[in-house]
């Protein structure tokens, strides 16, 4: 027969096994282990979101840091700790938007043309290059106002529900829905004028 189990000490459970809400509370209390667990759990999501917004960019490492430091500093004020992923994706969207906005300002004096956009290269006869589609889509997104653009990315690239988009952006459900609709309409209106995106839109178009 075995003896009674004993517990000289009770050790905190590994942070990796805590729920999102428990992690948020721990981070709010200054627990660096919990911050590490949040990092491990969500760094790929945050990085992917920033990467989706900016494309290949040398600032991505810094922006990922900014997103997590932002979370660390505001963890105590998080309204719904269970929606940690949405919240982090929201921060990722915001730091990306801020980067794009300030970059425009920083490099305005370097523009070659009045609008800052280089003229399109002559159309090529070669088959469509996916890089052209990506470039075209990013140019379109740059022409969409900030809030609808962030809402569009969170809703359609990250597949968040409208409620999660609201949480991520810290706005009301109604405002999030309006921003999603506005972002979608703007992107689709611009995209149908862009030949490089036509193959992706064809399956979703029909005659009126």
């Amino acid at each position: 027969m075995r003896a009674l189990p004993r517990s000289d000490t009770v050790v905190a459970f590994p942070r990796s096994r805590l729920t999102d809400a428990e992690l948020v509370h721990a981070v709010a209390g200054g627990d660096h282990d919990a911050l590490s667990a949040v990092w491990t759990r969500y760094v790929a999501d945050v990085r992917t979101m920033i990467q989706s917004c900016l494309g290949p960019d040398s600032a991505i490492d810094d922006l990922v840091q900014e997103a997590f430091v932002g979370f660390y500093r505001n963890a105590a004020r998080l309204e719904n700790p269970r929606a940690l992923r949405s919240y982090l994706l929201g921060i990722a969207a915001r730091v990306s938007a801020f980067e794009l906005r300030t970059r425009k300002r920083r490099f305005r004096w370097l523009r070659f043309t009045r609008t800052g956009t280089l003229p399109d290269a002559p159309a090529k006869d070669s088959p469509l290059d996916p890089r052209d589609s990506l470039r075209a889509l990013r140019q379109i997104l740059a022409r969409v106002p900030e809030l609808p653009r962030m809402a569009f990315m969170l809703r359609y690239a990250e597949d968040l529900s409208p409620q999660e988009v609201a949480l991520a952006l810290g706005i009301s459900d109604a405002k999030a829905r309006r921003a999603i609709t506005r972002g979608r309409e703007r992107v689709l209106a611009l995209a149908r004028q862009e030949p490089a995106l036509l193959p992706y839109l064809e399956p979703w178009l029909e005659d009126a």
Binding site: R47, T48, S52, Y156, L205
Partner: peptide, 25 residues
Amino acid sequence: RQYRSPDGAARALAHLLREDAVARV
């Protein structure tokens, strides 16, 4: 021509960006 499913079209475009990002990450 009009969009049969604006949500579907929007998702198709957004996933273009996401798939590229996922591969890079």
